[in-house]
């Protein structure tokens, strides 16, 4: 397991946030997850002292958030020299192709439809090659 990795998640809905955490946990990802309640909070962290050089991060971004939304945060990250290497996965409520297109155009690495079924989620994770990319997986269910 890549313990040097911190998962950051911007998600305004508490239930969704919990579900995402559990789904990650259920597929064996035990890394710390830092959660932000909206885009502004996430952006503040990314520009604050807590973001350490040399650590690895993965950012999960909900598209629709009040105030600063996920699309805007993504746009800012991708135009920031220091932050643009952080991999970003967009969290979508629907699989609306238009939204997905927009996110890819802005440079997101992948997208994840909000997790519903455990089986489906793990399949999705696998399909995306997420585990291979960021973590060492002990066990695939």
């Amino acid at each position: 397991m890549n313990e040097n990795l911190t998962i950051l998640m911007a998600e305004d809905d508490d239930g969704h946030a919990r579900l995402v955490e559990e789904r990650f946990e259920s597929v064996g990802v035990k890394n710390a997850i830092v959660r932000f309640r909206d885009g502004a909070e996430a952006w503040e962290y990314l520009n604050g002292p807590e973001l350490k050089n040399g650590r690895e991060y993965l950012l999960l971004l909900d598209i629709r958030m009040p105030g600063l939304d996920g699309v805007e945060v993504l746009r800012r990250i991708k135009s920031d020299a220091r932050l643009k290497t952080i991999p970003v996965i967009m969290l979508t409520t629907t699989d609306d192709p238009k939204e997905v297109e927009t996110c890819y155009a802005l440079g997101c690495n992948s997208y994840l439809t909000k997790p519903v079924e455990f089986k489906k989620f793990s399949e999705v994770i696998k399909r995306l090659g997420l585990f291979l990319m960021v973590v060492r997986v002990n066990k695939v269910k």
């Binding site: 579900l19 409520t93 519903v116």
Partner: peptide, 21 residues
Amino acid sequence: TTHDLRSPLVNIQGFSQNIQR
């Protein structure tokens, strides 16, 4: 509207599955 309605549905479906598991 549909987009916003889908948001609570994620919780209902997600947590129901949690309970089922």
